[in-house]
Design a protein around this nucleic acid. Sequence first.
DNA 1: TTAACATATGAACAGACATACATATGAAGG
DNA 2: CCTTCATATGTATGTCTGTTCATATGTTAA
Lengths: 104, 104
Amino acid sequence: MIDKNAEPFALPEEETLYDLAELFKIFGDSTRVKILYALFETELCVNDIAETLNLSQTAVSHQLRILRANKLVSGRKDGKNVRYSLADDHVRTIIDMGLEHIEE
Amino acid sequence: MIDKNAEPFALPEEETLYDLAELFKIFGDSTRVKILYALFETELCVNDIAETLNLSQTAVSHQLRILRANKLVSGRKDGKNVRYSLADDHVRTIIDMGLEHIEE
DNA sequence: TTAACATATGAACAGACATACATATGAAGG
DNA sequence: CCTTCATATGTATGTCTGTTCATATGTTAA
């Protein structure tokens, strides 16, 4: 079964599955999920996020760093502020998919 | 969409987003992802999984417990063995969605 | 019943990680 | 230049969690 040749099925590269887990790990923290969800609607700067979600500025900044590093959000400078937005429509899809699973 | 009334947008319940993160946390471990992926094709018992993925029996058993508790896999007894399979088609969808995101 | 096998469970340890605190960088206005 | 505001970064800490080792439960065969 888990055969690499003629079989109808094969495990992806070890590394691929590892990367996949790393991706999900990002979504596996409620602070990050909240941030991502807040960005569903509109661009937001760090303080907006912190206030909206009742989080400290540093906590948000640290998490945004992780989200940025994983290309889930992107930030553009706007004066003193940095406006963050979702980097990708997959983010939305993945979260929606998860929500669907939960609502059952 | 996530909206209950007239507003164009609203955050889901705090708890919902928390549960969502909990769900993704399950997928956020390469051992568990490997196990789930191995079950894409067919039912497998604990030892099969352990051998296929080069993992210890206990490690697999512990992870299966978590996957079971979260209703991502289900096991049925078959003599001395317990045959595990994916509990839900969402599992497949979520993983595929993640893979899509990665392959870019 | 006893032996052999398959799986599960408990405890302990090590590594990962999210947060808070203090501080640094950088931009705008006076 | 100096101050203020927005954001980022470094470090320390407490907590969570995945693995291992040892052992228990349960099943089949002799």
